[in-house]
Design a protein around this nucleic acid. Structure first.
Lengths: 210, 210
DNA sequence: ACTCCACAGTAACATAGGTTACAGATAATT
DNA sequence: AATTATCTGTAACCTATGTTACTGTGGAGT
């Protein structure tokens, strides 16, 4: 059995299920920035993330973006699951935030395993639970926080996800993900720098104390 | 078997499951405005909605509210489901938008039925799917729409849910649910009235053409 | 009919955030 | 080193929304 599977899902699934996953799952490695799912795509496989991080984005009619949340190792994409079941198109875009390793499961196994393995059902339910909570978090941020607070939260999350106090993004990129304009982000970042919370460089933000 | 169960869930569940629901489910009727779940509550039963509508609200630390979405007949509350499984506290508030009839299922049955009935699994997955999509809709509204557009969407939804072109709410109540101030709502409603889209009265808004 | 009160209308002002425009800084390319 | 493209800083301005304050009004209760 591949080591990544055992390491990340060994404690979740019984051996029989692990074996099945090992047999039918396709191991896949994607580079940073790789577009895994585009809006409108039909989903053919369920991804189990074993390392790295995936960012999930929403887009409106004008092409304006908004970051919803990140997936990390041990996660799967509940929106994908629900697309599989309903055979509907994806409502979201998924892009590798860092390079990532995944195991792709054919969607036919979904219903099969749900009937036969309690641990699989728990995993799927747990996954939905986590995703709903992430969505609530996102709603809280957009509805209740001001842009400066959202920016701080975003920087913290980025640093946590990549395990790196240095964030490699332009102000424009951040503006897209928070659905605002570059000038606003530059303005707020400069304020944070004046407060000693970050240090700004070209293409790069160093988090000092937030 | 109670008629409401057969009428609303007969096409979803096999007879054996319908019988079990009939045996262990508690029929319940609640009046408009009834607070069904408060933030922090532990959930002891899964509600199957057979008539009426439930509104699901989120609240921030300052007590400010935000309407997330409505549940209608045939729906269940996925957030509740996920609370049951995780034995965690509710993150949301649920209030009867209209008088409503429900069948309450003890949470122990959840895992039991998930293993034994494919139709139950499908129902639960479908429910999660719908709720995730409603959350996406909500996020779209908050992130991408201006307040006037959100207000129009809200009025339409209210009218649809209650099957009544007349909306029985004060401006203050609407302001709470959209997380803004009364003055803003009054201002926007007056604009809509000047455009001939609504007619305003005390405690009451008549939708004409939106 | 009179009183009271929640509700609605509106003006005047404050603020966050969006927009436009341009200058200067940094890195990449020739 | 010179040229170019990209990124960042900043000012000036605009708009949507939030805030405060006050007025008027309709309806319930007396």
């Amino acid at each position: 059995m591949i080591q990544e599977l055992k390491d990340n899902y060994g404690h979740l699934f019984e051996d029989a299920l692990l074996n099945e996953i090992n047999q039918v799952g396709a191991f896949k490695e994607v580079p940073e920035g790789f577009k895994m799912i585009e809006i409108g795509d039909y989903i053919r496989a369920i991804p189990l993330l074993v390392s790295g991080a995936i960012k999930i984005l929403r887009q409106d009619n004008n092409g304006d973006e908004l970051l919803l949340y990140f997936l990390e190792k041990g996660d799967t994409c509940a929106i994908t699951l629900s697309c599989c079941l309903g055979q509907t198109k994806s409502e979201i875009r998924a892009i590798a935030e860092t390079k990532a390793k995944l195991i792709m499961i054919p969607i036919q196994k979904m219903e099969d395993w749900s009937g036969r393995y309690k641990s699989w059902r728990s995993f799927v339910f747990e996954s939905y639970h986590n995703r709903l909570n992430e969505m609530l978090e996102t709603i809280d941020s957009i509805a209740f926080l001001k842009m400066d607070e959202r920016l701080i939260k975003y920087l913290k999350e980025k640093a946590r996800i990549s395990q790196d106090k240095t964030i490699h993004n332009t102000h424009q990129e951040i503006a897209y993900e928070l659905h605002t304009s570059r000038v606003v982000i530059s303005r707020l970042l400069k304020k944070l720098e004046n407060l000693g919370k970050v240090k700004l460089h070209r293409n790069l933000i160093v988090i000092k104390d937030i």
